[in-house]
Design a protein around this nucleic acid. Structure first.
Length: 371
RNA sequence: GUGUCUGUAGCUUAAAUGGCUAAAGCGCCAGUUUGUGGCACUGGUACAUCUGGGUUCGAAUCCCAGCGGACACA
């Protein structure tokens, strides 16, 4: 069983440490999105230096390229990409269900590679096998994503996710026997915005022999507090919970942590960075806007990241306008640092009992300041 | 100097035999981005037919001259 220690509780919120074979994660924590075994535009050294504790890669992408056998041959994901820290893999379910022309049946999903059109099939068993080959510390169960946000589709997705979870657990246990208990499995709670479905799904997952939980299918942040209260009051307290794909908006991180989530991942911060949308304590700014052309101040004066410590807004503006690679590098360093440290600060504020003050001050300034 | 070709928005190009308010991409301006999307996506902006004559109901399109450019030959 994955070791998870809780140091402090405050309502549903908790401060803890997840002990993985590749190291500890002090929670709450933001996990960097390394979809193809790399955080876009950043080196692993930069990720370590900006304070990231863990990364999350994607099974779908790695199955297609370079293939899971190659990663196994390399010694596993952490060795392959030189992260040498805690790693997660998402099951690939979310990506596959986002593809056009997927054929879904009870057994699994058939789809065409977005790279060369080759036919692929993924089942709960094959996703588990792929994740074992990739060798991340924490695996996510292969789940079924709803076609729409309608109740009917949500119910179908939930039902199948539950059926597939049982198969994931069985396959995971089989692989654990073969290879040793060094990799861990999270179940995925579905149910969309329907609280009764969320309750059902949480109850179903809570009873399974898994190491933690992913909370998936959060399409809209609105109402997330109520949903998380419903789910996290049911999930066992002593296992970690990962809020899948949320973390582009700071408010999601505050709400997520407040209502009992331990880790987060999101491609948002680095994607925003690549497109010039950069976080500041006064809200996100588009550095490409003409008004920054002559702005020789740091992007965010109080920020400790490499970008803010060394470069000005005018310089970043110039790099973006000229489409220099370094624009994406510096912007990604900053955005990732900003989100990682915001969650770290949430952790500190929970420890010293100032969470509510920190939250209200942060959110008030972030969402109301006119730049 | 002579010959040939050429001159459409900031840039690169479109506009069949002359015929609807001369298009598009880039640029510029702004917005979007939540378990995929590494140069993404969505909008917006453009006092543009080198100048002056001529032919014609009508010219970016044909003719003449001037100015500018490219190539070739001296």
């Amino acid at each position: 069983m994955l070791k998870f220690e809780i140091e402090k509780r405050d309502g549903l919120a908790r401060v803890g440490v997840i002990h993985t074979p590749h190291g500890d994660i002090k929670t709450p924590a933001f996990v960097g999105a390394a979809t193809r075994a790399t955080v876009k535009a950043l080196t692993m050294k930069e990720m370590r230096e900006l304070g990231s504790q863990a990364i999350l890669a994607n099974t779908y992408h790695l199955v297609l390229r370079p293939g899971t056998d190659l990663i196994k041959e390399a010694g596993g994901l952490a060795e392959f990409c030189s992260w040498h820290g805690p790693t997660f893999t998402d099951s690939g379910g979310f990506q596959i269900f986002s593809l056009p022309n997927v054929k879904i049946n009870e057994n699994g999903v058939k789809f065409k590679s977005h790279i060369d059109g080759a036919n692929f099939e993924m089942t709960p068993e094959s996703s588990m096998q792929a994740q074992w080959a990739i060798g991340a510390d924490i695996h996510i169960a292969f789940d079924h994503l709803a076609k729409s946000e309608s109740r009917e589709d949500m119910e179908e997705a939930m039902r199948r996710t539950h059926a597939w979870l049982d198969r994931c657990v069985a396959e995971h246990q089989r692989l654990t026997q073969d290879a040793g208990p060094e990799q861990y499995l999270y179940a995925v709670v579905q149910g969309g915005t329907f609280l009764d479905l969320r309750k059902q799904s949480a109850e179903y997952c809570a009873g399974k022999p898994v190491d933690g939980f992913g909370i998936g299918g959060v399409f809209v942040a609105k109402g997330m507090d109520e949903m998380l209260q419903t789910v996290n009051n049911i999930l066992p307290e002593d296992k970690p919970r990962h809020l899948l794909g949320m973390g582009q908006e700071p408010i999601d991180l505050f709400v997520g942590a407040e209502y009992g989530c331990d880790t987060f991942d999101c491609v948002g911060p680095t994607r925003m960075a690549r497109n010039g949308s950069l976080y500041t304590l006064d809200g996100r700014i588009n550095i490409k806007n003409a008004k920054y052309k002559h702005d020789f101040t740091p992007l965010m004066p109080d920020c400790g990241c490499e970008c803010c410590q060394n470069y000005t807004r005018a310089y970043l503006h110039h790099l973006f306008k000229t489409d220099e690679i370094t624009a994406k590098v510096l912007a990604s360093i900053h955005n990732e640092y900003f989100i990682v440290h915001t969650v770290d600060n949430i952790r500190e504020s929970l420890l010293d009992g100032t969470f509510q003050e920190y939250k209200s001050e942060f959110l008030k300034r972030y969402y109301t300041t006119a730049l």
